[in-house]
């Protein structure tokens, strides 16, 4: 009993620490968000300002931008803690590493994934999405971005401390993001063209459950390899 309470206390403390640290580095959080907004805003300039065209490409554009933005933020997931030695402390902690990792991923998502979700309706409106499609866009991002953070954490742990880690990370992680992109963008498209998005959303949720079960554990193993 007492061990479990102390474990939850530790996990809660870790979560608080992560959020506090990120709050101090607010500019970093904003960078990811602005990157997302800017990438999405480039498409009308590059493709066409016509609202019909924009409406068809909107789900894909927003989703690809979300993929890139959450991938760019991954460097900070373990980077700071690796440099100042906190990560080695975490490895030695009595609590299971996978749980600690899960807390870190959750905190990371709160500060990088969640802002993207909150910003997305605005971008959807710019692209002429309305009503249901807009709601589904926000909903799928809410379901999908945690998967991106979870899968991305594996890559972040594997490339920890390597030269050229950022580019390498994108090479490792982007192919693994494909299912999330397909189901996420597909759901919005299905709704926009008058079909139901139920199938897409259930598959997105299934992927999230799978990632939730597997990723923290694999990430913990990857951290052990990287810090060996």
């Amino acid at each position: 009993m007492s061990t479990s309470t102390s474990m939850f206390a530790t996990l809660g403390y870790l979560l608080g620490r992560e959020v506090k640290l990120a709050a101090r580095r607010l500019p970093d959080v904003m960078t990811t968000l602005f990157f997302f907004v800017i990438v999405v805003s480039l498409f009308p300039l590059g493709v066409s300002p016509e609202i019909e065209t924009l409406r068809t490409i909107a789900p894909g554009v927003v989703w690809v931008a979300a993929l890139l933005a959450s991938m760019l933020a991954l460097g900070r997931l373990f980077g700071e803690d690796f440099r100042d030695g906190t990560l080695e402390q975490l490895l030695l902690a009595p609590q299971p590493l996978s749980l600690l990792v899960l807390v870190k991923i959750f905190a990371h998502w709160l500060l990088t994934g969640a802002p993207l979700v909150l910003m997305s309706p605005l971008l959807g409106i710019q692209f002429g999405l309305n009503g249901d499609a807009l709601a589904v866009l926000v909903g799928t991002l809410l379901l999908g971005t945690p998967s991106l953070s979870l899968v991305g954490a594996v890559g972040a742990a594997l490339t920890l401390g390597l030269r050229g880690g950022g580019v390498l990370l994108s090479l490792l992680i982007l192919p693994l993001y494909v299912p999330v992109l397909i189901f996420g963008a597909g759901a919005v498209e299905a709704v926009a063209s008058g079909l139901g998005a139920g199938g897409h959303i259930s598959l997105l949720a299934a992927f999230l459950v799978l990632a939730l079960c597997g990723a923290p554990w694999v990430t913990a193993a990857a951290l052990r390899i990287s810090l060996d």
Partner: peptide, 16 residues
């Protein structure tokens, strides 16, 4: 480790 993660993902990617 990456190969194992990839192998779990390959059927999911193919299906999607």
């Amino acid at each position: 480790l990456l190969a194992i993660v990839g192998a779990v993902n390959v059927p999911i990617i193919y299906f999607s």
